[in-house]
């Protein structure tokens, strides 16, 4: 039941922020629909609940700007490849060892790889990631190290 209350509070604050109209009718509709959705979520199985501490969120906050910088660099590289008339690509499938060990860290790592243009994650099992890359040479070692740091290793 506390989980449903948290869901209700988050939904209602989002509703109030979004609508910008504060009249009894709209607020009443908001309360009713948020209560319905909160009741609905109690019928769902709770998903996996990874353990996180404040340090994780802080390190994640520091990781995001670095990731955005990497995304911009990779974007420029891929854009140059696409625009050049000869299109010098050498597509390949790679098996990359996955440094992060917890599900949360592995999700972060795989999502970062996919979000960076030029590389995309196909599969993750047995602590290796199957990656399709547009051309050779990328900063996966650095990304691996940073994801492990966010996760809390070392």
């Amino acid at each position: 039941m506390p989980r449903a209350l948290v869901v209700f509070a988050v939904l209602l604050s989002t509703w109030l922020l979004w609508s910008g109209v504060y009249e009894p009718l709209t607020i009443g509709l908001g309360v009713a629909s948020c209560a319905f959705v909160a009741w609905f979520t109690t019928r769902l199985e709770p998903g996996p609940q990874p353990k996180t501490d404040m340090g994780f969120w802080f390190r994640l906050l520091l990781y995001v700007p670095w990731l955005l910088k990497e995304i911009v660099i990779a974007n420029l590289q891929v854009a140059r490849v696409i625009c050049s008339p000869s299109m010098p690509i050498s597509p390949q499938m790679l098996r990359v060892p996955c440094g992060p060990k917890t599900p949360l860290g592995q999700t972060l790592y795989a999502n970062s790889i996919t979000l960076t243009p030029g590389t995309i994650t196909l599969d993750l099992r047995d602590d290796t990631v199957l990656v399709h890359a547009l051309s050779k040479g990328s900063s996966q070692g650095e990304m691996d190290r940073r994801c492990r740091h966010v996760e809390g290793q070392s």
Partner: peptide, 18 residues
Amino acid sequence: RLPDFYTRTHGASITDTL
């Protein structure tokens, strides 16, 4: 322009991010 399906996903990735 890109030759096969897997490489085309990288093109779509550019428009989605930057």
